[in-house]
């Protein structure tokens, strides 16, 4: 990794100021579980790293009415172990339990995962699948407005995620088919039956990152069962292909994982 200037601000305002000053050359770091490997490979070379690790207020889980708010620097391990998350949105706790490995989960954070928007990451599927709201130091952003393509989000320069609010669904489940080597999602499908309707979000497969499957959502709205989506096909044309899975295989797996998620959601 290249040398860089390191800051560990003690307030959100300082963090915002520092990252704005750094401009395009700056990177925010929460758990660092994606950023550091990328920097080690010299694929990212920020001149400035602003570490959010000292902002203890950003970590924590709160139940607020019919929603669960998770602070941006809450680790995957904390989400997985949270009695509140387990009680209100079990699928989210299970998703968190399946991210990376135990060591990654001890440091990696929800805010970092979402801000990075890796096309094979798990959290974007939950955020989009549950219709979550992302709170930043500047505003609130709806999930549908947040993910803008590979590693692209609606976040503006100096904007820092502070929390993610997940509405409590009636039913939900996440099913992941892992890349056998990296263990990232080749296909991950989050299915939720919420007050706002049924949502199906797919990660790992799309050339443009996480996406929804309206045909499945429609079919499930009438009949929330695996059978209802048996005939729904996802076109392979806009899906990723690599040595581990062709686009056709991914398209097929979206169907399988979606059906299994619906069954698991009950």
């Amino acid at each position: 990794m290249y040398e860089f200037a390191y800051h560990r601000p003690s307030s959100l305002a300082d963090a915002a100021k520092l990252i704005l000053e750094a401009g395009d050359n700056g990177k925010l770091m929460a758990g660092g579980q994606t950023l550091i490997p990328t920097m080690k490979q010299r694929l990212a070379s920020p001149g400035t790293v602003v570490d959010l690790g000292a902002l203890k207020d950003l970590a924590g889980i709160k139940v607020e009415g019919n929603a669960v708010a998770i602070g941006a620097t809450t680790t995957h391990a904390a989400v997985a172990a949270s009695k509140d998350v387990q009680a209100k949105i079990k699928a989210l706790a299970e998703l968190a339990e399946g991210i990376g490995d135990r060591q990654v989960r001890h440091l990696g954070t929800i805010g970092g995962s979402i801000a990075n928007n890796d096309p094979a990451a798990d959290y974007p599927a939950a955020v989009l699948g549950l219709g979550a709201t992302i709170t930043t130091n500047q505003r609130k952003i709806a999930a549908d407005e947040f993910f803008k393509g590979l590693f692209e989000t609606a976040l503006k320069p100096g904007e820092i995620i502070t929390a993610v609010g997940f509405p409590v669904p009636e039913k939900a489940a996440y099913m992941k088919f892992r890349n056998p080597a990296s263990r990232y999602a080749i296909v991950g499908v989050f299915v939720a039956k919420t007050a706002g309707g049924v949502r199906v979000a797919v990660t790992g497969a799309g050339q443009g990152g996480v996406f929804r499957v309206p045909d499945m959502e429609k079919a499930l709205a009438g009949n929330f069962s695996a059978k209802a989506i048996e005939g729904v096909k996802v076109a392979a044309t806009s899906l990723n292909a690599d040595i581990h899975a062709s686009a056709e295989y991914r398209a097929h797996l979206i169907g399988v994982m979606a059906r299994r998620a619906v069954t698991a959601a009950g």
Binding site: R8, Q33, I36, P37, K40, D51, R102, Q103, L107
Partner: peptide
């Protein structure tokens, strides 16, 4: 690539990969 786990240590009681944590962190 932060995958093999040969570097695992405990930081504040939790297992972490010492190759994926800056000393300053």
């Amino acid at each position: 690539t932060s995958q093999c786990g040969a570097c695992v240590v405990h930081v504040d009681g939790k297992s972490v990969k010492a190759c994926t944590l800056l000393a300053v962190q």
